[in-house]
């Protein structure tokens, strides 16, 4: 598969969960990916995980100086084709429902609390499960590639039917 051949992509918040799954999928599809993340150790792990055609840039996206540094790092490589979590040319939004990421459990003070929340969320989600990060990544890929060339400004739900059903 090569639907992002020779494209440059920036994935912010790319160190874990949805972000790293998306970075991996983009690289598999031929892109060079810049991962922006706040936590150095997590970022290094994500870069190692993606393995090739990837650069990690330590960035706190709430700091404008950091964004300038991210811009410089990417500009040395060329022009950006895709920003995941940002905006340029065709802009679309994807709305995940509950996703099975490390962050999900980290929200809760205890393991039991997290397990209980999981059960509750599964019970109220029509598809009766959490999303896999790869399912968000494949939707990001669809919106990022030419596959969605006539799609602009939309909000695509990847929520197991939570919103509509």
């Amino acid at each position: 598969m090569s639907s992002l051949k020779n494209k440059i992509a920036v994935v912010t918040g790319g160190s874990s969960g949805i972000g790293v799954a998306t970075a991996k999928r983009f690289v598999e599809e031929g892109a060079y990916v810049f991962i922006a993340g706040r936590r150095e150790a997590e970022l290094d792990k994500a870069v190692a995980d993606v393995g090739r055609n990837v650069t990690g840039v330590k960035t706190d996206i709430s700091k404008l100086d950091d964004l300038d540094r991210l811009y410089e790092a990417v500009a040395n490589k060329g022009k950006i084709d895709v920003i995941f979590a940002g905006a340029r040319i065709r802009t679309n939004v994807l709305s995940p429902g509950p996703v099975d990421t490390p962050m999900f459990d980290e929200q809760f003070p205890s393991k039991d609390g997290a397990a209980e929340a999981r059960q509750q969320i599964m019970a109220m989600t029509p598809l009766a499960r959490l999303a896999r990060p790869e399912e968000i990544a494949s939707t990001a890929l669809f919106l990022a590639s030419d596959q969605s060339s006539y799609v602009a400004g939309i909000d695509l739900l990847v929520d197991g039917g939570l919103t509509a059903v």
Partner: peptide, 29 residues
């Protein structure tokens, strides 16, 4: 461009149901 969206919804969008996917050049939004 519509066919690609249909096949995406059919086979790749495995956590999406009950949704409407506009493929409209941005017109609706």
């Amino acid at each position: 461009e519509i066919a690609k969206a249909v096949l995406f919804l059919a086979f790749d969008a495995t956590f999406t149901t009950g949704a409407e996917f506009p493929v409209d050049g941005g017109w609706s939004q």
